[in-house]
Write a protein that binds this DNA or RNA. Sequence first.
DNA 1: GATATGCTAGATAACGTTGTCACGTCACTG
DNA 2: CAGTGACGTGACAACGTTATCTAGCATATC
Lengths: 343, 343
Amino acid sequence: MSEGTQAGRRTGGRPTMNDVARLAGVGLKTVSRVVNGEPRVSQAMAERVRAAIEALGYSPHEGARLLRRGQTACVGLLLEDVANPFYSALAGAVEQVARANGFLLFTASSEEDAEQERELALAFCARRVDGLVIVPAATADHRYLKPEIDAGVVAVFVDRPAVGIAADAVLADNVGGTRTAVVHLLRQGHRRIGFIADAAEIFTAAQRLRGYRDELVDSGLPFDESLVAMGHPEPHFVHAALDSMLAGPEPVTALIAGNNRATVAVLRDLSTRPQQPALVGFDDFELADLLNPGVTVIAHDPVALGKTAADLLFRRLQGYRGPVQTIEIATRLVPRGSGEIPR
Amino acid sequence: MSEGTQAGRRTGGRPTMNDVARLAGVGLKTVSRVVNGEPRVSQAMAERVRAAIEALGYSPHEGARLLRRGQTACVGLLLEDVANPFYSALAGAVEQVARANGFLLFTASSEEDAEQERELALAFCARRVDGLVIVPAATADHRYLKPEIDAGVVAVFVDRPAVGIAADAVLADNVGGTRTAVVHLLRQGHRRIGFIADAAEIFTAAQRLRGYRDELVDSGLPFDESLVAMGHPEPHFVHAALDSMLAGPEPVTALIAGNNRATVAVLRDLSTRPQQPALVGFDDFELADLLNPGVTVIAHDPVALGKTAADLLFRRLQGYRGPVQTIEIATRLVPRGSGEIPR
DNA sequence: GATATGCTAGATAACGTTGTCACGTCACTG
DNA sequence: CAGTGACGTGACAACGTTATCTAGCATATC
């Protein structure tokens, strides 16, 4: 009784399978069998082992198990910012699917920084996650993931597509969404429609701009660059943009805001002005209906986006070998008043 | 050249340190030394090893490394629901601190279910996270964590305290917050103040009720149970509660809503009614200032909550052995109009 | 009663790392 | 010129599991 008769003194003093085996007076593998519910174990042995497990408070070391097994039952989720309600809803959906599949989820935010995205994604891979769900940062190039994907990591991109590699993506119908917004405003009689969105390097912003421009042009209207402002939707930026769009002989009578951040920034700025142009925002947001007037939006469903991406990821993890695919999730117009202000 | 001269065919075909050693014609340990930047390696060796690493596209297996090292550099974050903006802000803060410390973060939602919380927390522990940040589910009893904590896992509770064990906690000043709200409404002349909050099993709801009751009583006013409604803030529930509080000979002239969910539910319901009682909500929320009238709130800072908890966690992980502590984060009244409606 | 069969149990070798140790080699010292 | 370090290197065991394989033993078969 010189050294530990109880739990080993190793990793934080936790008992190991070996400790259990010693205490129960059985072989290591027998404990393993009991822990994993393998069939060929006698009643008596199983009982002894279970008693020893109980006595020691043993719980298996998942890390060691998975090292041996060669997979981790972990998925990494990389997004721009968990604190953004749009992404947190998406994260919730991914998390649910992961949990349903018995996987644990790593989460991290790239803060729209390509280098940070890369670091985090590779950190996940170093932990040997089985799969990745990624909302790419604006200027990211995903060739860095090539070796990881070749090594078996499954990557699914959400909200924005991968750049430089072929990979599954689940996107919103950004072009269709803004087209719908433009059509809606044109029907109300608007002819001068401004567009305020995130920086043009951001995929969704660029796509939404395309929808805006295409629909205008298809409707026989001019595409006027001076009515477009793209950049990080900070108060200053939005204020300046609105100053310019609302001034002059032909001010805009309607606005399209390119995402939830931009919409909120526009609303906040408009609340200090006499003019109240019509407004359609991309992305729905809580309380949009309670504002006065309610904010008309192009809603798309972050939960559907996240769930679809995660489902696809797990299909692939379960062996599905179909070709790389891009899934587009529909958007829908939710008229609430702000987009229905007549000219 | 019969078998793999290139990368091994093991775990998903990834090259291992052994493969690198073989290719470079050096010992295993030398590769390890180069990878970890240990000092005593000759220039020439290091170069050979680096070339082999490059050629093979080797990246070290963090799981194996950490198994050997006995710690995982992972923290688990368990909250009620990532999709709730309050918690996602908190999550963002925890994530930042984790990242700054070189840790990765597991995230999971208990969905306010004690059993699910337990399962997830234990799943984190089975992965041998070094620490846990937990927002407890309503009726949870945390004695299940005792063995884990004894084994060295550091647990810090946020927003709600641990039950059944002594553990660090970072809480908002819930009692003080509602006391402030009551004082504020009393000053406006209100005497019939309703209180609508989450179910009483939830710590914060109970504390906020206490603040409400204590302040009323201290001010010499009766505590009237019929003005209190506690339950899951669903539309039906809130509607019924308001029906009852706003009816009769002495309707409430002011309301306190116990959290962001309740505030939104109340606002939504009130928007369909002629009466517009004064309202103070607990928790600030985006757009509160843009509603008409702006919503007066007791703001507390989820980011501060999360950051403080995470900082404490890492202090402990770095060896700090001070006594268990409870940190209270101040709240502050943000008057915006809805609480200033005179009787 | 001897052999074939089935089942349980445990030794042993992995998984991919790092820590410990022992072994050269070389320059420096007395 | 032998003795002493310091330095560079690699064998080997460990971390806590699981997979493979073999041994033991009881039962079934002829």
